[in-house]
Simulated scan of single mutants.
Amino acid sequence: MSAAPQIQPDTPPVLRDQPEAGLVRLTLNRPKAYNSLSVGLMTALQNELDAIRADRSVKVVIIAANGPGFCAGHDLKEVRANPGRQAAEALFRQCSMLMQSIIALPQPVIAQVHGIATAAGCQLVASCDLAVAAETARFATPGVNIGLFCSTPMVALSRSVSRKHAMEMLLTGEMVAASRARELGLVNRVVPEDELDSAVLSLAGMIASKSPLTVKIGKEAFYRQLEMPLAQAYDYASRVMTENLLARDAAEGIDAFIEKREPKWQGC
């Protein structure tokens, strides 16, 4: 009897490069599987985000993908090969932690989307701070079609688009074109596919030119105040803005504006 074939690990499931100073691009690299979120890919992406978190030289993160699509969600073959409650709980816990890590990252994260972004892949797009999509990109939360409602993708989706639009995507599982995704607020910009890379780099470069301290303060405050009642949100934002005003970069930025010159950020 011949030995069972050995399953080769994804090598490497995430690629990292620096297209420009201050920018890091993390490229999902399971093209044959439409970059589905295997445990190995999620672990690699989590490790990259953890390393970037403390790297002050990184101003903006881009999440892109190789192959014909951005991300097709969880690796269903891997899911079926690991049945049972314990494996399912570990999988969704890992994915939820990954998505929250993107929100908690001090640096802004931009999704560069081509092809399809479905289920947890759509969740990944919705979890990023910004998203730029090719005109040919399509989005869906199609779990309902296979008897597995997209409950965890729902968390990110319902925080990016209105309730009724989120419910329509979740209940029908239908594909949404890039132009419609922009109308819904799921993506910021839609560009021709051959301009996708340059459009993302242009947006990332614009953000990277700002004070990194100010961007960090603003990103954290944005997500925290969203979950607060109105009066509490204003109290919190006022405290944040007071601390921000006392920072060196704020003084430098205001002085540069008054003196009609370019500011020189120090990140403090």
Rank of each mutant, 00 (worst) to 15 (best):
I63A: 06
G173C: 07
N82V: 00
S101P: 00
R189W: 08
N35Y: 05
L186T: 02
P212K: 09
L26G: 08
P142R: 10
A233M: 03
M1E: 09
K77R: 09
Q107G: 04
E195M: 11
V144Q: 02
A90G: 02
A4R: 14
P263G: 01
N66Q: 11
T172N: 03
V200T: 03
P263I: 01
M99L: 14
G143R: 02
I62R: 03
A250Q: 03
Q112V: 02
I7S: 09
S202Y: 09
D249I: 09
N47C: 03
K210R: 07
A72M: 11
A4K: 14
M97I: 14
F257R: 05
A166P: 04
G73A: 13
P68W: 03
P19G: 06
Y234T: 05
R239I: 02
E193V: 05
A81C: 05
A81H: 02
N29E: 01
L213E: 09
R261H: 10
Q46R: 15
L98T: 02
K216L: 02
A126T: 13
A156M: 15
Y236F: 11
V79F: 07
S162N: 12
Q225V: 15
E243K: 15
Q100R: 11
A256V: 04
G267I: 02
A33W: 13
G218Q: 06
M154C: 09
N35Q: 04
A90N: 07
A231Y: 08
L157S: 08
D55T: 13
M169Y: 06
A44C: 01
A181C: 13
M99A: 13
R25H: 08
F257T: 10
R159W: 06
P192E: 08
L37C: 13
L203E: 13
P153V: 08
S198H: 03
L23P: 01
C128F: 04
G69P: 00
A44T: 00
D10T: 09
A131W: 05
Q86K: 09
V14T: 12
A51I: 00
A104Q: 13
V132R: 04
K32A: 14
L49P: 00
E20L: 04
A88V: 05
L186Y: 04
Q86P: 00
D255K: 15
R138E: 14
V113W: 05
M154N: 14
M97N: 15
R93Q: 11
V191C: 03
